[in-house]
């Protein structure tokens, strides 16, 4: 991906940012959903749907920004299914998430067949344009900026926005209250269901953006299996980041760095097998959860359906 003329360090750094971006989006989605008390294992599926509809929107109109809009809306819709199931219908949130993941995979393969008349992958479409050459002219960091795409900037801005909303606004206080102690929040007149719907749907919006990053940010098509577990790595990043926006983003960067480093290490022929790098995020997250690396505390009411009027 990196052209030969730029220094290795810059290429490594840029690759880390590019690889971290879809993880950051989805991990932020996880943070916002779980802070309100709804576990969202369906992030993977929502990313798949977002990635597909970004391509479909772009192919339909020729405008990749419309594709972006499609990704956001489709992500929100799939998340809304999860929201209805887990909030009003009090479904087991893990079951609902598993169902969403299976549904997303099947739906998108079906739609590739129906809407593109092909199997396995869609046609190439207009990807989100990025002025790489203009960026390269920026002094000092130009070569680095030239290697990125717009999604990277959006993701980083979103980290700050989510952090600000969660910790410095009344809405954020309500979200956290609902995730920690929904009954107390309800007593104070906060509509628990409304907050949770909002958060789950927002998590779909974010994860949809994460999917779009892969399909119209990095590439220009949708391929079956292109998300390949990134939704789950994002889930790991959210946990490793202790359910906090900055933490989740930092974990996403760490996991992405491991991936970027692997590509580099392969180039130099260093001995560690590829699979070791691939397994790194998961092993690290398990260690973190077990208390060997740092400390993680999930929101108190995470995954517990709220029953209005139950004593």
């Amino acid at each position: 991906m990196a052209n030969g003329s730029i220094p290795v360090v810059v290429a490594l750094l840029a690759a880390t940012f590019r690889l971290a971006t879809p993880l950051i989006f989805a991990a932020l989605g996880g943070v916002i959903s779980e802070r309100s008390g709804v576990v969202n294992i369906g992030l993977e599926g929502i990313m798949i749907v977002g990635a597909f509809f970004a391509v479909y929107g772009s192919s339909l109109t020729g405008n990749p920004w419309v594709g972006l809009l499609f990704a956001v809306i489709s992500g929100a819709l799939v998340a809304a299914i999860h929201a209805v199931l887990s909030i009003h219908l009090k479904a087991d949130q893990t079951v609902s998430g598993v169902a969403i993941n299976l549904f997303a995979g099947a739906l998108t393969s079906f739609l590739i067949f129906k809407l593109f008349g092909r199997q396995g992958q869609t046609d190439g479409v207009a990807a989100l344009p990025y002025p790489a050459e203009a960026m390269a002219k920026v002094p000092v960091i130009g070569p680095f900026l030239a290697e990125l795409n717009w999604f990277v900037f959006m993701a980083i801005i979103l980290v700050f926005v989510v952090h600000y909303v969660l910790y410095y606004t009344p809405l954020g206080l309500r979200i956290r209250a609902v995730g920690e102690h929904p009954k107390a929040a309800d007593t104070l007149g906060i509509n628990v269901y409304k907050i949770r719907y909002l958060c789950v749907i927002m998590s779909g919006v974010f994860a949809g953006l994460g999917g779009a990053t892969l399909s119209i940010g990095v590439m220009n098509l949708f391929r079956e299996g292109m998300v390949s577990g990134r939704g789950f790595i994002a889930l790991a990043a959210m946990i490793f980041g202790n359910w906090k926006p900055f933490g989740a983003a930092a974990a996403s960067f760490l996991f992405a760095f491991a991936q970027a480093f692997e590509i580099l290490a392969q180039k130099f022929g260093w001995a560690l097998p590829t699979e070791a790098y691939l397994a790194f995020p998961y092993i690290l997250t398990m260690l973190a959860l077990a208390g060997f690396v740092g400390k993680t505390t999930p929101p108190a009411a995470d995954g517990v359906p709220y029953n209005k009027g139950e004593r």
């Binding site: 299914i81 199931l85 219908l89 009090k90 479904a91 087991d92 079951v95 609902s96 598993v98 169902a99 969403i100 299976l102 549904f103 995979g105 099947a106 739906l107 393969s109 079906f110």
Partner: peptide
């Protein structure tokens, strides 16, 4: 596979 996924969605919704 769609049939299977939808079955689970409805099983999950047994509430």
């Amino acid at each position: 596979y769609l049939i299977q996924a939808i079955i689970i969605i409805f099983v999950a919704a047994d509430y």
